[in-house]
Design a protein around this nucleic acid. Structure first.
Lengths: 225, 225
DNA sequence: GCTTACCTTAAATCAACCTTAAGAATTAAT
DNA sequence: ATTAATTCTTAAGGTTGATTTAAGGTAAGC
């Protein structure tokens, strides 16, 4: 799970980053509103945390602009005690939640869980491609030959490929998406897991396979033999 | 079943929380209107109980704002005797029910049952899956081999799993749902209670078991041996 | 033919999970 | 009031299987 943190006060940013990474989130920290806006538009994050008071552009304005662009990422605002009256304004502008400083790390983590949960609980809960289905509720890959329950990592990989049909995804991108920036291991882990998925696609009787484009990446492809 | 309670008077809040948890509700207590609004927008509650008189934002205003956001959670307002005239205002603004202080805990519980019942529009108060039944009134798990009364935590856990058949629920989600946001303990408490439930499922002769998906979560599954 | 990117398998590892037990804490019974 | 029973929570040790690493193989492009 990837988080964009925009907080100009260095010590606060450092502390938050420590808490979040310790809890297995992958964190990118930026230090003013313009950076925040620029980073969030890459669409590379699952949730954004903005301080209200920031140089160049305040948190409210960042939220207003990203909503104006149609970006629906969940946003949590951090407000100091003295800015209590501004909270409602933050929510009206499109923030999903806010937290008043100082706060307990426990509450922060709980709220992040809630936000990411509601974000992923979309109405359509199965991905389809070719003759296969991937059920996001029970992690099951279903094909004409049967259903197989996927382990978490394989599920995330296949989910990402199915969510972006016809798009070539580089190993690095898959690596970052599934394992996050703070993972220490080698990129070959992507290959290993893709191998496992390929085997299971065959087992499920899929007419779909993961096509390799050397030096470019991978994409799902209908296999008409 | 999760309840958000917003009541600023500490002794009252404590008493209500005790009554509700004793009746197998999972309660999160907050102490002012802004907190109430923030928490309720997480969508994590089945019913909300607001005191009218609260710091920062009164109960009426909280209701007005959550309805303006399109949130349809059932809301019960608590009003003091002197505010009787305001009741109608509360209902007009979108509250579903009100209760005048002081009140009997019995009446509170009865009204909560009514609210949650109409919300889920279920006349029947038992959950079913496979060959087992879970009675929401007396907290009894019933299978072909007999009935067992479940303690509060085990009941809430199983209730949540049965209310979401075929959906993998992460340990963290179950943790938040059953123990609430302000619980200090470790997540292993989920594992312990799941273990107890599993034993009782066997005792009841259930053809249902709690399936673990490592790094993903848990779901109920029919056990066809 | 050589390099390098990628594939596959299998073994090792380690965190996630399970279970039991025991001590608090609460509730019921006497 | 005291005692007994139940329930909640923490702790500890064990287990397991998903994840990761490692290692040897394949094939694409030059």
């Amino acid at each position: 799970m990837r988080i964009l943190l925009a907080e100009d006060e260095k010590s606060m940013s450092k502390a938050l980053t420590a808490i979040l990474t310790k809890n297995n989130y992958s964190v990118d920290a930026v230090f003013d509103g313009e950076e925040a806006l620029s980073y969030v538009t890459t669409g590379d994050y699952d949730i954004a945390i903005f301080d209200v008071m920031m140089p160049k552009m305040d948190g409210f304005e960042v939220v207003r602009q990203i909503r104006a662009k149609g970006i629906t990422i969940p946003v949590m605002m951090l407000t100091a005690k003295s800015q209590v009256d501004d909270k409602v304004e933050g929510l009206d502008l499109g923030a999903n939640d806010y937290l008043t400083k100082p706060f307990e790390s426990k509450e922060l983590l709980a709220r992040i869980r809630v936000l990411t949960r509601t974000a992923t609980s979309t109405v359509d809960n199965t991905l389809r491609f070719g003759n296969i289905e991937l059920n996001r509720s029970n992690f099951e890959l279903k094909g004409p030959a049967g259903s197989i329950k996927l382990p978490a990592k394989e599920f995330q990989l296949l989910e990402y490929l199915m969510a972006n049909p016809g798009v070539i995804m580089s190993s690095e991108k898959l690596f970052d998406k599934v394992w996050g920036l703070d993972f220490d291991g080698d990129i070959s882990i992507v290959w290993t897991n893709l191998s496992y998925i390929r085997r299971k696609l065959v087992q499920a009787g899929a007419d779909v396979k993961i096509k390799t484009s050397r030096n470019a990446g991978y994409m799902l492809e209908q296999d008409n033999d």
